[in-house]
């Protein structure tokens, strides 16, 4: 394992029951500071991979190394979990305490951090996700997006090297999704935290540094968003979406246009189209 790779799986296989492999011979390395999106439809095995990164599950074959620790080593369990924080899909079912700040403190209390330091780190984490004013609220009164930011604050407070988010926006409305995505991007930019985002929304994967597409327990595409989303046909076949503009370009190119297949944003698309359409006019 090179010093750069903080998560590294080698020929990793996983199955709940014999004969039904959910993950097949996976070799994925994730570099420090990288923002990686794992894209796949339900049942593709992407959430299972997430659970292997912090030793909730251990490989049935092959190995998973996190910060040089083998996740099968039970003695390292808490070191691993402290370094790989995890945020889940349902915002309601991961908040433990009846007061926001108490919940953010939960992980720190578990690991025996001194009270004064907990206070400091909780306040900092709440400010980072923009929820400091809500510190003495009951989580029940908050929106889904706010609850999810509280869950992220609870992880930030533990100062992990890496955060794995398992479909954190699947149950949120557009406004909540935007807030959470902004918070996720901030994790990398401000704190240098390595982010692994599990999602089936391509518009979220587009914002990552690297996209890995998983289908039937195997990575089938791996690269920058531009590289990955230009494979419109493969993505559509696995039941995933591509950005509308990428799809438009792909379809127009079938009619003999010569547009850049790596177009991802509406601005790029509008500029390319404007050029062609004005040409056509002349």
């Amino acid at each position: 394992m090179s010093a750069e790779n903080i998560i590294s799986s080698k020929n990793l296989c996983f199955s709940y029951e014999q004969g039904k492999e959910i993950l097949k011979e996976i070799n994925i390395d994730i570099k420090r500071g990288e923002f990686t999106a794992l894209l796949g439809h339900n049942g593709s095995g992407k959430s299972t991979f997430a659970r292997l990164t912090n030793a909730i599950l251990v490989p049935t074959k092959g190995s998973m190394n996190v910060f040089g620790m083998d996740t099968s080593d039970e003695g390292k369990l808490y070191d691993i979990r402290q370094n790989v924080g995890m945020v889940f899909q349902n915002p309601d079912n991961q908040i433990v305490a009846a007061v926001v700040e108490e919940d953010v403190a939960f992980g720190l209390e578990n690991t025996g951090v001194p009270p004064a330091e907990i206070r400091e780190r909780v306040d900092e984490a709440l400010k980072a996700v923009g929820m400091y004013e809500y510190r003495d609220h009951s989580p029940g009164m908050l929106s889904g997006g706010q609850k999810q930011r509280i869950a992220i604050a609870g992880i930030i407070a533990m100062r992990p090297e890496c955060i794995v988010l398992d479909e954190p926006t699947a149950m949120l409305d557009p406004a909540g999704r935007k807030d959470v995505m902004r918070t996720i991007r901030m994790l990398g930019e401000r704190y240098g935290i390595t982010v692994v985002l599990i999602t089936h929304y391509m518009d979220e994967a587009v914002r990552a540094d690297r996209v890995i597409v998983i289908d039937e327990g195997k990575p089938i595409l791996d690269g920058t968003p531009k590289q990955v989303f230009s494979h419109v046909d493969i993505l559509k076949k696995t039941g995933l979406d591509v950005p509308q503009v990428t799809e438009l370009v792909h379809k127009l190119n079938r009619y003999g246009f010569d547009l850049d297949p790596q177009i991802l944003t509406e601005e790029e698309c509008a500029a390319a189209l404007a050029f062609v359409l004005k040409e056509g006019k002349s």
Binding site: F88, L108, N110, P115
Partner: peptide, 27 residues
Amino acid sequence: FRRAEELALAMECRCYRGGEGRTRMKQ
């Protein structure tokens, strides 16, 4: 029950291991 299961998982991920060695923020 589903909530309980998911909550237990989330608590484990946040290093919960009972009262032993636990501190409290609010003294």
